[in-house]
Design a protein around this nucleic acid. Structure first.
Length: 574
DNA sequence: GCCGTTTTCGGCCCGACTGTTTTCAGTCG
């Protein structure tokens, strides 16, 4: 792909500018730069193309000045303005400000007073007791700085949704059992089902916060209490994740739930909307500015209705145009959880899965599915537990036998092929033609240049046997960046070739990512939401796939496996 | 620096907790 800077890299530069401006205590500009960075980050179109068609100022948050800076970034690879800010502020101040409990003001102060340039020097100063005694710092501050540095070493700072969701639900259940708790829910990014989570937010309604906070701070998995108040407490679990619990009165639960679910940008937009109507919106309610009276309501639906909007699902609350779409009445009906009729990507013990096909079919039936596709890998160097052509033939026989016995349930014989460096698949065409379903994905040589990766995928899409493109971007969350693909060409070709794009619920992939789902949708793509389960218990990863689809504005009708079996067979021509 | 159903100028979300300077700034979400 042309251009050396991608959207993420451009956004990173603008975020850095915002941080440095904040450190310099410049008013309002940090917000402006962050809004622009967010706009670019969540844009599905390549920023280079946007610049070519002179459309930068149409990006939300980008005006004439930032547009000029983006053009400089795209043509030179960096930004003079940023370099100047770095010089003004001192090299390590931004790094110091990232430590929990230290913000821009304290970072600048420490830099000026002690000449601290990086986290190492900060740690040394704290250990030597040189920070206590400074204006505004005491022994406690020093200890908190050391703990902040230690916490930073332990984790990347973010966790997989799939890893934290069960933890959050367990804690929620524990709190729900308390007599003093009237209502409790996860909030924050975990309720929005964001792919990675910084910390877990919980919200409870109770008239007696004291016992609720006590119970929360002494839950078995808690290893450290960061703070305990009557409305907010924070703890850290053994995994290093922070959990915040807010407790409000029941009458405030509706606005509090909306508020603590965020996102921050979505909330700011809603508050502006409330201001336009002469009200002040906060977690404590909707107050008429003139009279100081609280407006009545009891659910989030009430709140959105009050602001003349239809209900907006938590997964959509990212300020990516959902409020404007809701206002115009063009917000899509996103796919409900539990609406798929089967799972099109499951691994069995024939390959690298744990359970037999019979066991997987039983587990799928128990979930209410009407069908399941067994898609093991093909044997190749590096994939020891893949299937040989001989095994494939045997597996087909077993599936045929099982299908004769099963009533009202159908097992599809599928395969997960690898797309080679030249775009070819790892099975001959006559064998591929025999499967009910062929999923093709890149599993080797994932570091090729964007152009070459795009060509590999295009070749696979043009193979008539391929039904689904598996984990299209190849990203591994928190580990590997997505391939630098030419998405418009891939989406256009997939639509023309009637190849579905997979949305895998593998917790470390969630690929196709939500933002690209929304873009692919414009090309009339069909999606396949799947678990990629390697064991019966992992069939529930489907919920993560559906969450990703919902965040990508995808409706049930756009997902292949919401169709009943006859509709699916029709589409697959089997 | 951006943006507009009060505005092309003058706004820009709101509140709790912490530690410490004992009345509040800084930080966080």
């Amino acid at each position: 792909m042309e251009g050396t800077m991608n959207n993420r890299q451009v956004a990173a530069i603008l975020y850095e500018v915002a941080d440095l401006l904040e450190i310099k205590d410049v008013k309002f500009k940090p917000v402006a730069y962050r809004r622009a960075a967010h706009g670019i980050e969540t844009l599905a179109e390549d920023i280079n193309r946007v610049a070519e068609r002179d459309g930068l100022e149409e990006v939300p948050g980008v005006g004439s000045h930032i547009a000029t800076k983006i053009r400089e970034i795209l043509s030179t690879g960096n930004l003079q303005y940023l370099e100047r800010l770095k010089g003004d502020v001192g090299p390590g101040v931004r790094e110091i400000a990232e430590i929990g409990g230290i913000g821009p003001k304290k970072a600048v102060f420490l830099h000026q007073k002690l000449g601290i340039e990086n986290i190492g020097q900060l740690e040394t100063a704290a250990k030597e007791g040189r920070i206590r005694g400074l204006f505004g710092f005491g022994a406690k501050s020093e200890a908190n700085i050391l703990q902040g540095i230690a916490a930073r070493k332990g984790t990347t700072g973010r966790f997989l949704l799939g890893a934290l969701l069960p933890v959050a639900l367990r804690m929620k259940e524990a709190l729900a059992r308390l007599p003093a708790v009237r209502q409790v829910s996860p909030a924050g990014s975990i309720r929005r089902m964001k792919e990675t989570i910084g910390d877990i937010d919980l919200l409870a309604a109770s008239a007696e916060p004291g016992p609720v906070m006590d119970a929360f701070c002494t839950l078995p998995e808690v290893t450290r209490v960061l703070g305990r108040g009557t409305t907010k407490s924070s703890v850290v679990l053994a995994s290093g994740v922070q959990v915040d619990l807010r407790v409000v009165e029941e009458a405030q639960y509706w606005t509090a739930l909306q508020y603590f679910t965020g996102s921050k940008d979505h909330n700011i937009a809603l508050r502006r909307r409330a201001l336009e109507r002469g009200w002040r919106l906060s977690e404590y309610g909707v107050k008429e500015t003139a009279t100081g009276k609280n407006r009545a309501g009891s659910t989030e639906e009430d709140l959105y209705r009050m602001l003349d909007l239809p209900y907006i699902e938590p997964e959509l609350r990212e300020n990516r145009g959902e409020i404007e779409a809701a206002e115009k009445g063009i917000l899509p009906q996103i796919v409900p959880y539990g609406s798929v009729k089967g799972d099109l990507h499951v691994h069995s013990s024939w390959g690298d899965g744990t359970h037999s096909i019979r066991e997987l079919a039983a587990a799928a039936r128990a979930r209410g599915y009407a069908y399941i596709a067994i898609c093991d890998h093909v044997r190749s160097p590096g994939i020891d537990r893949g299937l040989t052509e001989e095994k494939i033939a045997q597996q087909k026989k077993e599936i045929e036998q099982l299908n004769r016995k099963l009533d009202g349930f159908f097992i599809l014989h599928g395969i997960e092929c690898n797309i080679g460096a030249d775009g070819s698949l790892d099975l001959p065409q006559n064998i591929l033609a025999d499967f009910d379903l062929v999923t093709a994905g890149i599993h080797s040589q994932t570091r090729m240049h964007g152009d070459e990766m795009t060509h590999r995928i295009l070749a696979a899409l043009q193979n008539d046997s391929v039904d689904i493109l598996g984990h299209p971007t190849g990203r591994i969350l928190l580990q590997r960046e997505p391939s630098d693909l030419d998405h418009p060409v891939i989406f256009k070709t997939a639509a023309e070739q009637h190849v579905a794009l997979e949305i895998t619920g593998d917790p470390s992939r969630l690929d196709l990512p939500d933002v690209l789902c929304r873009k692919a949708k414009e090309y009339g793509i069909t999606f396949s939401a799947c678990s990629d389960a390697h064991a019966a218990g992992e069939l529930q990863q489907m919920d993560l796939a559906i969450a990703t689809a919902r965040r990508g504005w995808i409706g049930a009708e756009e997902i292949l496996n919401t169709r009943p079996l006859p509709g699916l067979r029709n589409r697959l021509r089997i």
